[in-house]
Amino acid sequence: MIFLRRQLPLLITFVAGVVFAAQYYVPHPTSELMLTEVTKWLQIISGFALVLGVTSLFHIHAVKIRRKEPGWAYSLILYGGILGTIAAGFSYSFTAGQWVNGKETINGIVTAFGWIYSDMMVPLQGTMFAILAFFIASAAYRSFRARSREAALLLIAAIIVMMGRVPLGEMLLPVSGDVTQWILNVLNAAVRRAILIGISLGAVALSLKIIFGMERAYLGGGKE
């Protein structure tokens, strides 16, 4: 039993890891087909991972409602949002004369699901991110006081890029557009590249540790 519970998952990880690492070096149609198939498989399996996440969310809010914890009514709103959207997604569109089945529009006609997307999700998402502009401004006030050479550099770069991204900024500071391009294409690219190389080396090391069974955190704890 210990083999099934502990050794088998490690064996599956090892075999799958080695096979798909080797696949990259085999330019054969069968190898390419295998990659296409497994990519589809991963999409299917990740769909089941969503079930885990959603049930966890449902459980947390069900407990809040059952215990009448402070703010439990908001959990009802959340349930309403989820169930209402699902209902709209699988409803029948009388205008279009067919089932919606997750389509926002059918023959150019906006469905109830499409209405929820464009008139609820998009404004909510847009505004949620837009209010960050105010909080970023307040954070900037606190952190951008040029107390050191490094902070001054950060401040100057931020101001130049902000000026260079809008016509008004370019009008006030004509060189800001060109300098912004230079900062983004050269200085920023250099830093991004160095960070990317570092992250990639870490990712390769972690992948090797996973394949060879040195990293087992993904298996979780619990009984052997």
């Binding site: 798909f20 690492a21 990259y24 992948s207 394949i211």
Partner: peptide, 19 residues
């Protein structure tokens, strides 16, 4: 664990040469 082992194994294997 079998499901997670498969996903993580395939993901790691695909990642190494491509990264």
């Amino acid at each position: 664990r079998i499901a997670f082992a498969f996903i993580v194994g395939v993901g790691s294997g695909l990642a190494i040469p491509r990264i």
